[in-house]
Computed example of a mutant assay.
Amino acid sequence: MVKYFSVFFVTIVLLLAGCGSVPVTGRKQLNLVSNQEVLTLSLQQYSDFMKSAPVSTDKTNTALVQRVGRNIANAVETYLKNNGYADELSSYSWEFNLVKSNDVNAFCMPGGKIVVYEGILPYTQNETGLAVVLGHEVAHAVAKHANERMSQQMMTEYGTAAIGTALGGASTGVQQAAAVALGLGSQYGILLPYSRKQELEADKLGLIFMAMAGYDPGQAAAFWTRMSQQGGSTPEFMSTHPSDNTRIQQIQRDLPEALKYYKGGSGTTNSGSAKTSNKWSF
């Protein structure tokens, strides 16, 4: 009985100590991992990736990615500064890169290191479409989804009773949480559904962030519709991402809130080229 009480007590203490909230949405989240540890690990991974990645030689589209990314990052930083999150700004060192690849993808590392693949540009089609993608990726960084996922994995991998030990040597615990693959039961029962929740949150925040930067969030659903027309899909319960229909329907529900932040003013620079057939995974 004492053993179970101890486990329960440790659980409560950890959950209270590691509780944070997401800017704008206010959703409570579990963060057992320090920003510094996450940034150290992610920066190393990002550095390794960029050393081998074929950086795009398309100067026009590279400049477009950097311009749209910076517009959104500036708008987000202004929002954070004016709404009680100024202490968070030191966590971000924004960088936006375009990689030469036909993959229809983009990803964000903690701290604001964002990579866009050339293969997604035929689907973004213009500057506003690109803002949908970059708003979504910036949202992952601002919402600290990587910290949350690693915390979730630590809870799942080590068990509540062992979390205290793992956190006692935090660096080891964090590295293991980032590296160890989960069993199917935990993966499909806990982490993947939660990841879909994060993806939908990133969609919502992305709409708001692109609106803050002057891009029309009303064009987001059209972008995701184009993405859905690539063909082929993974059953939603086995995917880390929502189904196309789920995503588009939720975006339409979130649009009225995002429009409150929209004042207009952004142009639409064409960045399209021939379509590719790769399935997106960002």
Rank of each mutant, 00 (worst) to 15 (best):
V65L: 04
A17Y: 07
M154E: 04
S273R: 10
V174A: 14
L167S: 01
A211H: 01
T165P: 12
S195Y: 11
T62L: 05
L182K: 08
Q152K: 09
L14V: 08
Y92E: 06
Y158T: 11
E257R: 04
M227S: 09
K279R: 14
A220G: 04
Q29R: 07
Q45N: 15
A161N: 15
S101G: 08
P54D: 11
S277R: 11
L192K: 08
Y117N: 08
A178N: 14
A139C: 08
T25D: 07
V10H: 09
A143G: 10
N147D: 07
T276C: 02
Q36C: 06
G214Q: 09
I120Y: 02
S239P: 00
E157F: 12
V65P: 02
S273H: 09
T62E: 06
V38S: 09
A73Q: 07
L259H: 02
N82T: 12
V10E: 13
S273E: 07
E148K: 04
L64P: 01
V138M: 05
Q230L: 12
A162E: 06
Y215S: 09
K100T: 15
Q44W: 06
L89F: 05
G119A: 04
F96K: 10
S281F: 13
Y46L: 03
T60R: 09
T240Q: 11
L64I: 13
L167K: 08
M154V: 08
V99H: 00
Y123R: 15
R67I: 09
E157R: 13
P256S: 00
E236S: 01
L89D: 03
T234C: 03
V68R: 06
T172I: 09
M227D: 08
M150P: 00
S233K: 12
Q229Y: 06
M227K: 08
E118W: 03
W94R: 08
N74D: 10
G265M: 05
L80C: 03
A179N: 13
S171I: 03
Q250P: 15
S233N: 07
Q125D: 07
Q36K: 14
V138T: 05
P256E: 00
K100F: 10
E37I: 05
E37H: 13
A211I: 02
Y194R: 15
Y215Q: 13
S266T: 13
N35E: 12
I163Y: 01
E236M: 00
P110R: 06
M1S: 12
L15G: 13
G112D: 02
G189N: 07
F8M: 12
K144V: 01
P23W: 00
Q153I: 10
P256A: 00
G135L: 10
L41D: 13
V76Y: 03
T25Y: 09
T156H: 07
Q44C: 04
I72Y: 06
L259N: 05
G18L: 01
K59P: 04
V7K: 08
T156N: 13
V55G: 07
A86C: 03
E148S: 12
L192T: 13
S52I: 07
I120A: 04
E137G: 01
N83L: 06
F5Q: 09
L16P: 02
T246R: 08
V13P: 03
S21R: 14
Y79A: 04
F49I: 03
L192I: 12
A131W: 14
A143V: 03
G206N: 02
R196I: 05
L15C: 14
F107I: 00
Q125H: 14
A75I: 04
Y123S: 14
L121D: 01
S47F: 10
F107E: 01
S266K: 12
Y194D: 14
A220F: 06
